[in-house]
Amino acid sequence: MKQPSPRGEISALVLTTVAGTVDDGQEALARLATLVAEALSETPDILYDDDLQLALFSLYELHYSGIDEAGDDWEWNPELLRVRQQIEAVFEQRVRGEVVLGALPGTTSEAVCAELFRMAGEDTGPSMSRFVATAASDEQLHEFLVHKSVYQLKEADPHTFAIPRLTGRSKAALVEIQVDEYGNGLPARMHSALFARTMRSLGMDHTYGAYLDATPAITLASNNLMSLFGLNRRLRGAIVGHLAAYEMTSSQPNRLYSRGFKRHGYGEEALEYFDEHVEADAVHEQIAGRDMAGGLVEEDPRLLQDVLFGAAAGLAIDTLMTSHIMGSWESGRSSLRTSEAMAS
């Protein structure tokens, strides 16, 4: 990913530090730890803190496609990981505060699956999909893709980190879903590739991270949540629950998104990503709820709460992201940080 523009002292220091060598970075690392501790105690809300969310996103990115100019030897640098854990701890606590779990279901696969479907079906917050289907302007469709592109151009990757952490039925189920996400062996059918085609059809740059500077903190937070769950083994239940909730809230919204893009005259190339998800996720949600999440809880009932937490957290943070986008649009503003990125 190309180096994003810093959004404050901490993200600036993270980005300049990883752009240099580990040997030269020791002093900066010490300063970073102090600055982060201060910022964490002072931030009014880490979910909306651009500097901290971008810093965390950049630290996670070292485990994905990397950052241009950053050496790969930073990935497992203990001091840098410690800084990440400082931010993660406050972020996780904040997310936990956002989530209220209902009465716990039984620990059978069917009970877990039914509870996940119930949670995913609860209507909270404004519906972006209905708005996109019927009323969004062409400019708003572009904005919508900018928000989605942060995840969709690496679709499925955060959950792939969970594969070696699962066994048996839940592992087979996760892999079955991911094989489909990654195109069943056909690179052009990868969901990330289909999303790139949609962006191209709208005349947008589909390079991963191209619009990162335009995305607000809450969009980064939604992505950081997946990395937090995916990269910490202790949260393997949460990443599984997160994926199940994602799959369970996908088919119908994607049908409506497709309608919105069609309404503006975009053709097959642009719609395919959404149309594919209507059918794919109607399959995935069954596998994810019953075999992956339900299978995991049957194998280890202690993970029940984590699975439900992951699902609830994903739904809650995405509701906040949707509220931000819809709130901006309703008051006639852009939902992005900068509109210059879009004009280029």
């Binding site: 489909d180 069943n184 088919s251 049908r255 209507v278 059918e279 996720d281 109607a282 399959v283 596998i287």
Partner: peptide, 19 residues
């Protein structure tokens, strides 16, 4: 490879399920 077939009758993608 793995498919979900509609059995509620409401799918717009029949025979496949669309949720």
């Amino acid at each position: 490879r793995t498919v979900a077939l509609c059995r509620c009758g409401a799918s717009a993608l029949k025979p496949y399920c669309d949720g």
